[in-house]
Nucleic acid binder design. Structure first.
Lengths: 140, 140
DNA sequence: CCTTGAAGCTACAGTCACTGTAGATCGTAT
DNA sequence: ATACGATCTACAGTGACTGTAGCTTCAAGG
């Protein structure tokens, strides 16, 4: 029988079998053809679609955004400005997350190093630092 | 009546009322005293505990880790080495996430700028870039 | 003292993006 | 023909909350 099984699709895209079925249920993938026995069989178009979804997910788009992107792809006239908008706002989010994580990193490393070098059994400041938000260098 | 209401606690710590009750259900906060009518009343110790939880959550610890940290705090003898270990592994996670987000940022900004400057109505590359993982500069 | 309205109560369903389970059926290599 | 891995459906569970419905309680003003 021609077509890829769900397992083959999974192997090629790195998306788990259960997740593929979940995407189908969410309407992100079309209902695929079936064998006489009822197993899913996919063509290359579905593979490409799934790769698109996986890629967008890895870039941090949530499933609603992915659905939107897919809809845009299928719009016959040019709606790419919207895709641009979506990607741009995603970029802003990512930059914001990086900034916040960097402050986090500073704080955590401060907490951890407050304790480095103490001989075992000596009191260390990890728990205190955690308890005392006032000592933080940055807001969060 | 002495003691803070749940709402007062919420205001002071920034943790939502429903979330405080959720923490209680999870065993992170002790069962507080109650008024005759059954409303929760908290003392300062509970406030401190809740602040500790909130702070640890903001630093990205999950609730299991927070519970562990609390247990360590209550250990009579010195178990701070373990707290140190937990914080250190959190720090490693945070650094890893920053690294991955940075690659993401590069990729997204590449995608977005591939389209900047095109006059409206011209085809742009956002959707293509999203569909074509092969064009990515980094793995993900 | 009594009313009123905000704040609190419990219990449970819903969120997101999956993951895991049970128990049955299918497909294919030998 | 048989064995065994792959697939099927349906549903429960995850984490960390959030939201809802339908009550009861508290504290302040009149």
């Amino acid at each position: 029988m021609q077509g890829h099984s769900i397992g083959a699709l999974s192997k090629r895209t790195g998306v788990k079998v259960t997740t593929i079925r979940y995407y189908e249920g969410r309407g992100l993938l079309p209902d695929p053809g079936r064998t006489d026995g009822g197993q899913r069989r996919y063509g290359d178009a579905e593979m490409d679609r799934l790769s698109f979804i996986a890629h967008a997910r890895q870039l941090g788009f949530d499933l609603d955004a992915v659905a939107e992107l897919i809809a845009l792809q299928e719009t016959p006239f040019d709606a790419h400005g919207e895709a641009h908008l979506i990607a741009t706002s995603r970029l802003a989010e990512v930059r914001d997350r990086i900034e916040r994580l960097r402050r986090l990193e500073g704080e955590l490393s401060r907490i951890v190093s407050a304790c480095d070098g103490h001989p075992d059994g000596q009191p260390c400041r990890v728990l205190n630092a955690l308890a005392d938000h006032g000592a933080c260098e940055h807001e969060h």
